[in-house]
Nucleic acid binder design. Structure first.
Lengths: 349, 349
DNA sequence: TTGTAAGCGTTATCAT
DNA sequence: ATGATAACGCTTACAA
């Protein structure tokens, strides 16, 4: 009686598997596996019968077992510095979409701009058997490159583009984007620049952008005095505070370049608050284009990065590599300067 | 010669595994497994030796093999309607953080507010062997509940809280939050209300919020005339456009309740643009608290949801259930009314 | 405390 | 076109 009960329990409890389908269809497990993975290799009638039995039983192949034998997990890991940020969130969406379309699943982690944490998370992902990785930037933990090479895990660095980069990269050329933006302002006649930079700690993109500004300025024999330089993260409140600082240092800059959209919005709000005319008294520009920038009372000039294209491209590249195709090593994404009303010629002194 | 070459190749190529560690340490595979999974069950000296060999060889356990035998993947799947939204992005961050802390990995997908797509993505996740699921809302595909019950996959509905809900839920009580917000406005003296609602298509939270407004109004024998009701998604531009519509319908409402932060910001911007005094001419309130709302020239009254708490709680609940603990079935998160300057008593008629 | 050995549910290599 | 069967790399009774 007890035995009977246990048996019943077992039969209720036991997960149905490939063998159950095979038994029910009166074929070998190999044939069932084939109808799922290479249907064309199975005779139409048999295929039909097996397919219907699969449906009846509601069987779904066990991913772990499959991964164990194929050495492919069908997953891609992505480590972003943060998710609460417009561009990364958009990229994540596009990435996931593109991966799902091809039957891959996205594993996600956040590094908080900490390369050590990034390295650890990559480690976890590799343990999990990801088939590829999406990273941000190209300044990783010193051991990263070797680690991934040894494990033969393909990866792509996103949101960066440098033609002579070692690994694969998909993104805008950060340096050049700000080099151009700065030149645009110089050409408008600006000479006194202020910078509210995004912190370059663990952020090579921000560093590259800063370099772009400096390169453009020094080419024209310009520079940003210490009191016109400030560094923040990415909040509007910070933007306000830092802008107030810049404003206090006389003579005030006629053009302020902000490291990201939030800092820029904060700067503009504070400038308005201080009663400045924009762009008459000061031009304020940012990087990255979030909706509020074009809806502000003074719509803002900024650089628009095709973040979703970054995500989509990165996914495509990785999948192509997994399919054995040799894909190009670096892909540059648009970083378009969107000129709106927050920038204009400086008022004549 | 050829054979030799192949052999060499193989030995270079072969991934090192548990058995290699065991062989090198001169112990059984079981012991190695134990030192990794239950170190306390292995004698200290042996443990030390094995641990160091593991490090030397750089061995990491294969997740697929482990999952195959333990029937646990160590992964949790989350399906969000969108990621480009402040609250979901924040929740995702907190979720991932909490999961990582406990050794779990997050699988992420986006449903685009489409319950059919959500159902499919859940299906994929279950195939992948996720140990649990995080969903948003409680209005899922009709087959969802049964599907998950049959597969015995635990899940939690987030961003909703209804005491009599069937499944587990973690979130704010959407209806009550807007019921309270509306009453706050009524108590200020408002009688002519306008609504810029978030579309309720595939969004039971938005529907609940709308219900909350209606309940509060009808209790006081108030209602919103058709021309003072508009529906949008979540862009500032839409908020502007819809607000303009409401404004055109005379007499204009003295209080406008917006379905989300973006619509609210748009409404306020447009109202300013139209030269209205806020809150003198009109009170404008929103739902969800994004930074720009408190930085606007007129800081906005809104409802702040503890999104990261939602993510964290949901993770904890799921992990607790996986550990066999019986966790409470519904957890209500804060939905605090943040009163700022965009709301006040209506001007006397 | 440690070892032996039987799986976990697939895929893939052979034959047939 | 289909079938037998040996892996895949690990965990876990059970035995010692």
């Amino acid at each position: 009686m007890v035995l009977f009960f246990k048996k019943e329990l077992l039969s209720v409890t036991r997960r149905i598997g490939l063998r159950d389908v095979a038994r029910m269809a009166g074929v070998s497990t190999a044939t069932v596996s084939r109808t799922v993975n290479r249907p064309e290799a199975v005779s139409p009638e048999l295929r039909a019968r097996i397919t219907s039995i699969i449906g009846e039983l509601g069987w779904v192949p066990d991913a772990a077992a499959r991964a164990l034998v194929t050495r492919r997990s069908g997953t891609i890991g992505a480590v972003f510095p943060t998710l609460t940020h417009g561009d990364f969130a958009r990229a994540t969406g596009a990435l996931q979409d593109e991966l799902a379309r091809r039957g891959y699943t996205l594993l996600l982690a956040c590094s908080n701009y900490d390369s050590r944490l990034e390295y650890e998370q990559v480690g976890k992902f590799v343990e999990r058997g990801v088939d590829g990785l999406i990273l941000v930037g190209e300044a990783h933990h010193p051991d990263m490159a070797e680690f991934l090479a040894r494990r033969a895990v393909p990866y792509v660095n996103t949101f960066v583009y440098s033609p002579l980069s070692h690994g694969t990269c998909v993104g805008p050329d950060n340096r050049r984007a700000l080099y151009r933006l700065t030149n645009y302002l110089i050409d408008l006649g600006h000479r006194r620049f202020g910078i509210i930079a995004q912190s370059t700690r663990g952020n090579d993109r921000a560093a590259a952008r800063l370099q772009g500004i400096r390169d453009a300025l020094s080419e024209r024999d310009l520079a940003v005095p210490r009191q016109h330089f400030a560094e923040g993260q990415w909040s509007i409140a910070e933007g306000r505070g830092l802008y107030r600082q810049l404003l206090a240092a006389r003579p005030a800059p006629t053009a302020v370049i902000c490291g990201n959209a939030y800092l820029a919005v904060g700067a503009l709000l504070e400038s308005q608050h201080a009663g400045q005319a924009v762009p008459g008294d000061v031009s304020i520009v940012g990087y990255d284009d979030i909706e509020i920038m074009r809806e502000m009372p003074v719509p803002m000039t900024t650089v628009r990065v095709a973040s979703d294209e970054v995500g989509r491209r990165a996914a495509r590249h990785l999948l192509a590599r997994l399919d054995g195709e040799t894909a190009s090593d670096a892909y540059e994404c648009d970083a378009e300067i969107i000129v709106r009303n927050s920038s204009g010629p400086p008022r004549l002194a």
